[in-house]
């Protein structure tokens, strides 16, 4: 009887499926799909207000790549370089912290919270705080500041990004490391593995899913970085430390008549991020099956 009732209930619920979906669907269409399609359309137009857009074909895209300053290309190279360095440093340091904090040392919980805190601070605030800190140090050591050299800006951004992301990645690594059965490390110790061998042959392969997740999180976070970039260097000196998102923002709002080009850059940016996301999805999926 109960089973029959349940079946009936399930069936009737299924009929109402579209109704339940509708509110979210409407919100998604209004706030996401519509602006996205409009934005895509606008990238083929010249406009200063959405209402006076004139179709210009691929002009905006051509402008991006024929720009004598190569703003977009420079930003792309800078972003990729910054992202690669961040992926390496963030993941190595956060993994090392996670290893340290899973050894049952006293105060482990305190340190875990402390390392996680930077992640809770907004990017703009963080950017200005680090600007003060880095400028203070540069002033003492080389009598300079962060806007004077693109190298200062680059490494300043890397430090900031590390400081912000390490805690978050560390938490993911801690979860991964704690999931490794203690028996395995003991078995490897008896089998004759030194701590270093055990790390490379057992621990790292066992936390591979965490490593994939963390690498892609660092990748997307670094690639899409905007507010920290704006607050810390603002692109200075010149536009040499300008990352993609900041370049798009400055093209769109900073150059009169170039809104359409900014829009076109945003579309390219979207395509790059979408490709990364797609690869990420594939990679994490295949790892899940592996487990």
């Amino acid at each position: 009887m109960a089973k029959k009732h349940k079946k009936y209930f399930n069936k009737s619920l299924k009929n109402y499926f579209p109704v339940f979906l509708l509110p979210t669907l409407i919100a998604f269409v209004i706030a996401f799909i519509a602006p996205f399609i409009m934005g895509l359309g606008l990238s083929f137009t010249k406009f200063n207000a959405v209402t006076n857009a004139q179709f210009v074909g691929f002009d905006n895209y051509v402008k991006i790549f024929t720009d004598p300053n190569h703003d977009f290309l420079n930003a792309l190279i800078f972003t990729v370089l910054f992202t690669v360095v961040s992926i390496v440093t963030v993941n190595i340091i956060s993994f090392a912290f996670a290893m340290l904090l899973t050894r049952g040392i006293k105060g482990t919980n305190f340190f875990r919270s402390v390392f996680f805190l930077p992640n809770l601070i907004g990017g703009i605030v963080l950017g200005y705080i680090w600007q003060l800190l880095i400028n203070g140090v540069l002033d003492i050591i080389v009598n300079s500041d962060i806007t004077k050299s693109s190298a200062y800006g680059f490494w300043g951004l890397v430090i900031l990004n590390n400081w912000q992301l390490i805690g978050y990645m560390m938490v993911i690594y801690i979860a991964g490391i704690q999931n490794i059965p203690g028996d395995l490390t003991e078995a490897s110790a008896i089998d004759g593995a030194s701590p270093a061998k055990s790390l490379f042959k057992i621990t790292i392969p066992m936390v591979m899913p965490s490593i994939t997740i963390c690498m892609f999180l660092t990748l997307t976070n670094s690639f899409k970085m905007f507010d920290q970039n704006l607050a810390l260097t603002g692109g200075a000196p010149g536009k040499s430390t300008q990352m993609l998102a900041l370049d798009i923002y400055k093209t769109f709002y900073g150059r009169i008549g170039w809104a359409g080009v900014g829009q076109a850059k945003a579309v390219i940016f979207f395509i790059i991020v979408a490709i990364i996301a797609f690869i990420q999805l594939r990679a994490t999926r295949s790892k899940e099956v592996e487990q």
């Binding site: 028996d183 003991e186 078995a187 008896i190 089998d191 004759g192 593995a193």
Partner: peptide
Amino acid sequence: APKDRDIAMVFQSYA
């Protein structure tokens, strides 16, 4: 150290 004791161990969980 365990590796230098010339022993082998079989665990309950097989490990």
